[in-house]
Simulated scan of single mutants.
Amino acid sequence: RVDGEILKGWPTPTGKLEFWSRTLHDWGWPELAIPKYIKSHIHPENLESDQIPLITTFRVPVQIHTRSANSKWLDEIAHTNPLWIHPIDADRVGISKTGDLVRVETELGYFVLKSWITEGIRPGVAACSHHMGRWKPEGHKGQRLGISTVALNQEGSEWSLTPRKGGEPFASSDPDTMRIWWTDLGVHQNLTHAVHPDPISGQHCWHQAVRICPAKEGDRAGDVSVDTGKSQAAYEKWLAMTRSADRYSPDGTRRPYWMLRPVRPERDAYHLPLKTESAEV
Protein backbone atom coordinates (compact mmCIF):
# COMPACT_ATOMS: atom_id res chain seq x y z
CA ARG A 1 0.00 0.00 0.00
CA VAL A 2 1.46 3.35 -1.08
CA ASP A 3 -0.33 6.54 -0.03
CA GLY A 4 -3.41 4.47 0.67
CA GLU A 5 -3.39 2.79 -2.74
CA ILE A 6 -2.90 -0.98 -2.96
CA LEU A 7 -0.20 -1.73 -5.53
CA LYS A 8 0.98 -5.09 -6.81
CA GLY A 9 4.40 -6.04 -5.50
CA TRP A 10 6.89 -8.68 -6.57
CA PRO A 11 5.51 -11.98 -7.94
CA THR A 12 6.40 -13.81 -4.71
CA PRO A 13 4.15 -15.29 -2.01
CA THR A 14 4.75 -12.22 0.19
CA GLY A 15 4.67 -9.69 -2.63
CA LYS A 16 8.08 -8.52 -1.43
CA LEU A 17 11.66 -8.93 -2.60
CA GLU A 18 12.51 -11.88 -0.38
CA PHE A 19 15.95 -12.04 1.21
CA TRP A 20 14.82 -15.19 3.01
CA SER A 21 12.84 -17.56 0.82
CA ARG A 22 10.17 -19.65 2.47
CA THR A 23 9.77 -21.49 -0.83
CA LEU A 24 13.35 -22.76 -0.81
CA HIS A 25 13.13 -23.54 2.90
CA ASP A 26 9.89 -25.50 2.64
CA TRP A 27 10.82 -27.34 -0.56
CA GLY A 28 13.93 -28.99 0.88
CA TRP A 29 16.68 -26.40 0.39
CA PRO A 30 16.84 -24.61 3.78
CA GLU A 31 20.59 -24.01 3.47
CA LEU A 32 19.91 -21.84 0.41
CA ALA A 33 16.94 -19.89 1.78
CA ILE A 34 19.26 -16.90 2.23
CA PRO A 35 21.22 -15.98 -0.94
CA LYS A 36 24.87 -16.94 -0.86
CA TYR A 37 27.69 -17.84 -3.20
CA ILE A 38 27.49 -21.42 -4.48
CA LYS A 39 30.59 -23.09 -5.89
CA SER A 40 29.50 -24.46 -9.25
CA HIS A 41 30.69 -27.54 -11.09
CA ILE A 42 33.36 -25.42 -12.83
CA HIS A 43 34.66 -23.75 -9.67
CA PRO A 44 38.46 -24.22 -9.44
CA GLU A 45 37.99 -26.44 -6.39
CA ASN A 46 35.86 -28.81 -8.47
CA LEU A 47 38.26 -29.09 -11.43
CA GLU A 48 41.15 -31.46 -12.05
CA SER A 49 44.57 -29.84 -12.39
CA ASP A 50 44.47 -30.08 -16.20
CA GLN A 51 40.90 -28.82 -16.63
CA ILE A 52 39.61 -25.31 -17.31
CA PRO A 53 36.08 -23.95 -17.81
CA LEU A 54 34.76 -23.67 -21.35
CA ILE A 55 32.35 -20.76 -21.76
CA THR A 56 29.80 -22.22 -24.15
CA THR A 57 27.29 -19.38 -23.84
CA PHE A 58 29.75 -16.92 -25.34
CA ARG A 59 28.93 -15.65 -28.83
CA VAL A 60 30.03 -13.05 -31.29
CA PRO A 61 27.34 -10.35 -31.64
CA VAL A 62 26.60 -11.14 -35.28
CA GLN A 63 24.70 -14.42 -35.55
CA ILE A 64 21.65 -15.52 -33.57
CA HIS A 65 21.41 -19.29 -33.11
CA THR A 66 20.35 -20.98 -36.37
CA ARG A 67 17.87 -18.27 -37.28
CA SER A 68 20.44 -16.15 -39.10
CA ALA A 69 22.11 -19.01 -41.00
CA ASN A 70 20.55 -17.89 -44.28
CA SER A 71 21.80 -14.31 -44.00
CA LYS A 72 24.63 -14.03 -46.52
CA TRP A 73 25.91 -10.76 -45.09
CA LEU A 74 26.10 -12.05 -41.52
CA ASP A 75 27.68 -15.32 -42.69
CA GLU A 76 30.45 -13.43 -44.44
CA ILE A 77 31.20 -11.45 -41.28
CA ALA A 78 31.11 -14.44 -38.90
CA HIS A 79 31.11 -17.99 -40.26
CA THR A 80 33.39 -19.94 -37.93
CA ASN A 81 34.04 -20.32 -34.20
CA PRO A 82 37.70 -20.72 -33.16
CA LEU A 83 38.65 -21.48 -29.58
CA TRP A 84 39.51 -18.32 -27.68
CA ILE A 85 42.48 -19.08 -25.44
CA HIS A 86 44.89 -16.84 -23.53
CA PRO A 87 48.61 -16.94 -24.48
CA ILE A 88 49.50 -18.32 -21.03
CA ASP A 89 47.15 -21.28 -21.46
CA ALA A 90 48.15 -21.78 -25.10
CA ASP A 91 51.79 -22.06 -24.06
CA ARG A 92 50.91 -24.41 -21.20
CA VAL A 93 49.10 -26.92 -23.45
CA GLY A 94 51.49 -26.63 -26.41
CA ILE A 95 49.60 -24.44 -28.89
CA SER A 96 52.18 -22.34 -30.69
CA LYS A 97 50.17 -19.98 -32.91
CA THR A 98 46.70 -18.82 -33.84
CA GLY A 99 45.14 -21.18 -36.37
CA ASP A 100 46.68 -24.34 -34.93
CA LEU A 101 44.16 -27.16 -34.60
CA VAL A 102 43.23 -28.08 -31.03
CA ARG A 103 41.18 -30.85 -29.47
CA VAL A 104 38.76 -29.89 -26.69
CA GLU A 105 37.88 -32.89 -24.52
CA THR A 106 34.66 -32.94 -22.49
CA GLU A 107 33.21 -35.64 -20.24
CA LEU A 108 31.35 -37.07 -23.27
CA GLY A 109 33.99 -36.89 -26.01
CA TYR A 110 35.75 -34.16 -27.94
CA PHE A 111 35.58 -31.66 -30.78
CA VAL A 112 38.33 -30.25 -33.00
CA LEU A 113 38.68 -26.64 -34.12
CA LYS A 114 41.15 -23.87 -34.84
CA SER A 115 42.65 -21.81 -32.04
CA TRP A 116 42.66 -18.08 -31.59
CA ILE A 117 45.32 -17.02 -29.11
CA THR A 118 44.26 -13.70 -27.63
CA GLU A 119 44.54 -11.57 -24.52
CA GLY A 120 40.86 -10.81 -25.04
CA ILE A 121 40.05 -13.64 -22.64
CA ARG A 122 41.38 -14.10 -19.13
CA PRO A 123 43.87 -16.88 -18.30
CA GLY A 124 42.38 -20.12 -17.03
CA VAL A 125 39.24 -19.86 -19.17
CA ALA A 126 38.48 -20.80 -22.78
CA ALA A 127 35.51 -19.89 -24.97
CA CYS A 128 33.91 -21.07 -28.19
CA SER A 129 31.10 -19.08 -29.77
CA HIS A 130 27.88 -20.90 -30.52
CA HIS A 131 25.70 -20.28 -33.63
CA MET A 132 28.34 -21.97 -35.79
CA GLY A 133 29.01 -25.52 -36.93
CA ARG A 134 25.62 -26.08 -38.55
CA TRP A 135 25.53 -29.37 -40.46
CA LYS A 136 23.48 -31.84 -42.48
CA PRO A 137 24.21 -35.53 -43.19
CA GLU A 138 25.51 -36.69 -46.54
CA GLY A 139 22.72 -37.29 -49.04
CA HIS A 140 20.32 -34.83 -47.42
CA LYS A 141 19.12 -31.86 -49.40
CA GLY A 142 18.50 -28.55 -47.75
CA GLN A 143 19.99 -25.15 -47.19
CA ARG A 144 23.54 -24.80 -48.48
CA LEU A 145 24.45 -21.39 -47.10
CA GLY A 146 26.40 -21.69 -43.85
CA ILE A 147 25.90 -25.46 -43.44
CA SER A 148 28.54 -28.19 -43.73
CA THR A 149 27.88 -31.65 -45.15
CA VAL A 150 29.07 -34.33 -42.73
CA ALA A 151 29.41 -38.09 -42.38
CA LEU A 152 27.75 -39.64 -39.32
CA ASN A 153 29.08 -42.93 -37.96
CA GLN A 154 28.06 -45.06 -35.00
CA GLU A 155 29.71 -47.93 -33.15
CA GLY A 156 27.68 -48.96 -30.14
CA SER A 157 27.18 -45.87 -27.99
CA GLU A 158 29.97 -43.96 -29.74
CA TRP A 159 29.08 -41.47 -32.47
CA SER A 160 31.36 -39.47 -34.73
CA LEU A 161 30.71 -36.52 -37.01
CA THR A 162 33.23 -35.86 -39.78
CA PRO A 163 32.98 -32.87 -42.15
CA ARG A 164 32.94 -33.77 -45.85
CA LYS A 165 32.21 -30.42 -47.47
CA GLY A 166 32.38 -26.89 -46.09
CA GLY A 167 31.40 -23.58 -47.56
CA GLU A 168 31.69 -23.10 -51.32
CA PRO A 169 30.15 -20.98 -54.08
CA PHE A 170 27.00 -22.35 -55.70
CA ALA A 171 24.51 -21.26 -58.33
CA SER A 172 21.12 -20.00 -57.18
CA SER A 173 18.61 -17.25 -57.87
CA ASP A 174 20.89 -14.97 -55.82
CA PRO A 175 24.10 -14.14 -57.74
CA ASP A 176 25.89 -13.50 -54.45
CA THR A 177 26.01 -17.23 -53.68
CA MET A 178 28.62 -17.53 -56.45
CA ARG A 179 30.77 -15.05 -54.52
CA ILE A 180 31.17 -17.19 -51.37
CA TRP A 181 34.88 -17.26 -50.60
CA TRP A 182 34.94 -18.87 -47.14
CA THR A 183 35.14 -22.61 -46.54
CA ASP A 184 35.48 -22.94 -42.74
CA LEU A 185 32.01 -23.17 -41.16
CA GLY A 186 33.08 -24.02 -37.63
CA VAL A 187 32.32 -26.94 -35.33
CA HIS A 188 29.11 -28.11 -33.65
CA GLN A 189 30.39 -28.11 -30.08
CA ASN A 190 27.00 -28.62 -28.40
CA LEU A 191 26.97 -32.33 -29.21
CA THR A 192 29.83 -32.85 -26.74
CA HIS A 193 28.20 -30.97 -23.87
CA ALA A 194 26.74 -33.09 -21.10
CA VAL A 195 23.22 -32.37 -19.88
CA HIS A 196 23.55 -30.61 -16.52
CA PRO A 197 20.06 -29.94 -15.10
CA ASP A 198 20.35 -27.58 -12.15
CA PRO A 199 19.12 -29.53 -9.09
CA ILE A 200 16.78 -26.72 -7.99
CA SER A 201 15.48 -24.99 -11.11
CA GLY A 202 16.07 -27.69 -13.72
CA GLN A 203 17.70 -25.14 -16.02
CA HIS A 204 20.70 -26.31 -17.99
CA CYS A 205 24.12 -25.44 -16.54
CA TRP A 206 25.88 -24.82 -19.83
CA HIS A 207 29.53 -24.31 -18.90
CA GLN A 208 31.77 -27.35 -19.28
CA ALA A 209 34.96 -28.52 -17.60
CA VAL A 210 37.35 -29.38 -20.44
CA ARG A 211 40.87 -30.45 -21.26
CA ILE A 212 42.61 -28.78 -24.20
CA CYS A 213 45.48 -30.24 -26.20
CA PRO A 214 46.94 -29.98 -29.72
CA ALA A 215 44.98 -31.93 -32.32
CA LYS A 216 46.02 -35.56 -32.62
CA GLU A 217 47.01 -37.45 -35.75
CA GLY A 218 44.04 -37.76 -38.08
CA ASP A 219 42.04 -34.95 -36.46
CA ARG A 220 40.32 -32.50 -38.79
CA ALA A 221 38.67 -29.17 -38.06
CA GLY A 222 35.01 -29.81 -37.33
CA ASP A 223 35.44 -33.38 -36.07
CA VAL A 224 33.12 -34.37 -33.23
CA SER A 225 33.15 -37.57 -31.17
CA VAL A 226 30.56 -38.40 -28.50
CA ASP A 227 29.70 -41.38 -26.30
CA THR A 228 25.97 -41.37 -25.56
CA GLY A 229 26.53 -43.87 -22.76
CA LYS A 230 28.64 -41.28 -20.96
CA SER A 231 25.94 -38.72 -21.71
CA GLN A 232 23.33 -40.82 -19.93
CA ALA A 233 25.67 -41.36 -16.97
CA ALA A 234 26.31 -37.61 -16.66
CA TYR A 235 22.58 -36.89 -16.71
CA GLU A 236 21.89 -39.48 -14.01
CA LYS A 237 24.70 -38.04 -11.86
CA TRP A 238 23.09 -34.61 -11.93
CA LEU A 239 19.60 -36.03 -11.50
CA ALA A 240 20.78 -37.67 -8.28
CA MET A 241 21.54 -34.20 -6.86
CA THR A 242 17.88 -33.17 -6.97
CA ARG A 243 15.52 -33.34 -4.00
CA SER A 244 12.32 -35.00 -5.09
CA ALA A 245 8.95 -33.36 -4.60
CA ASP A 246 7.69 -36.80 -3.51
CA ARG A 247 9.72 -36.30 -0.35
CA TYR A 248 9.99 -32.54 0.11
CA SER A 249 6.82 -30.97 -1.32
CA PRO A 250 5.04 -29.14 1.52
CA ASP A 251 1.63 -29.27 -0.15
CA GLY A 252 1.54 -32.36 -2.37
CA THR A 253 2.35 -30.52 -5.59
CA ARG A 254 5.15 -30.97 -8.11
CA ARG A 255 6.47 -27.42 -7.87
CA PRO A 256 5.52 -24.04 -6.35
CA TYR A 257 2.42 -22.80 -8.14
CA TRP A 258 3.28 -19.12 -7.73
CA MET A 259 6.43 -19.33 -9.89
CA LEU A 260 5.84 -17.78 -13.29
CA ARG A 261 5.82 -19.91 -16.44
CA PRO A 262 5.36 -18.90 -20.09
CA VAL A 263 2.32 -21.17 -20.28
CA ARG A 264 0.95 -22.24 -16.91
CA PRO A 265 -0.88 -25.61 -16.79
CA GLU A 266 -4.16 -26.05 -14.98
CA ARG A 267 -3.72 -26.10 -11.22
CA ASP A 268 -4.76 -29.76 -11.01
CA ALA A 269 -1.74 -30.66 -13.14
CA TYR A 270 0.53 -29.57 -10.28
CA HIS A 271 -0.72 -32.27 -7.91
CA LEU A 272 1.48 -35.31 -7.36
CA PRO A 273 -0.11 -38.71 -8.02
CA LEU A 274 -1.74 -40.19 -4.95
CA LYS A 275 0.31 -42.96 -3.38
CA THR A 276 -1.59 -46.21 -3.12
CA GLU A 277 -0.56 -49.30 -1.27
CA SER A 278 0.00 -52.31 -3.48
CA ALA A 279 -2.69 -54.92 -3.14
CA GLU A 280 -1.76 -58.06 -1.27
CA VAL A 281 -1.64 -61.19 -3.36
Rank of each mutant, 00 (worst) to 15 (best):
G4N: 04
E5G: 03
E5N: 06
I6F: 09
I6G: 02
G15W: 09
R22E: 15
D26Q: 12
D26K: 06
W27A: 03
I34G: 08
H41S: 13
I42D: 00
P44K: 05
N46R: 09
N46A: 12
L47V: 06
L47K: 03
S49P: 08
S49K: 15
I52E: 00
T56V: 13
Q63N: 11
T66N: 10
S68H: 09
N70C: 12
W73F: 14
W73R: 14
D75P: 01
D75R: 07
I77L: 13
A78N: 11
H79W: 02
L83F: 05
L83W: 01
R92S: 12
R92L: 12
R92Y: 10
R92D: 09
I95G: 00
I95S: 00
S96N: 13
T98I: 02
G99Y: 02
D100Y: 03
V102R: 01
R103G: 01
E107P: 00
F111L: 07
L113C: 10
L113T: 10
W116C: 07
T118W: 00
C128A: 15
C128I: 15
M132Y: 10
R134N: 12
P137T: 07
E138Q: 15
G142Y: 05
R144N: 13
R144C: 08
V150E: 11
N153H: 10
Q154C: 10
S157I: 05
S157H: 08
K165Q: 09
G167S: 06
F170T: 08
S173T: 13
D176K: 14
M178G: 01
I180A: 04
T183M: 12
V187G: 00
T192H: 00
V195A: 11
P197L: 07
P197Y: 05
P199K: 04
G202H: 08
W206D: 11
I212N: 02
C213I: 10
C213A: 15
K216I: 11
S225D: 04
V226T: 00
T228I: 11
T228N: 03
K230V: 04
S231D: 06
A233I: 13
A233C: 10
E236R: 04
E236M: 06
K237M: 10
K237N: 10
T242H: 07
R243F: 08
R243M: 10
S244A: 07
A245G: 13
D246A: 14
D246F: 15
R247Y: 14
S249E: 05
P250L: 07
D251P: 05
G252Y: 05
R255K: 15
W258I: 14
Y270L: 05
H271F: 14
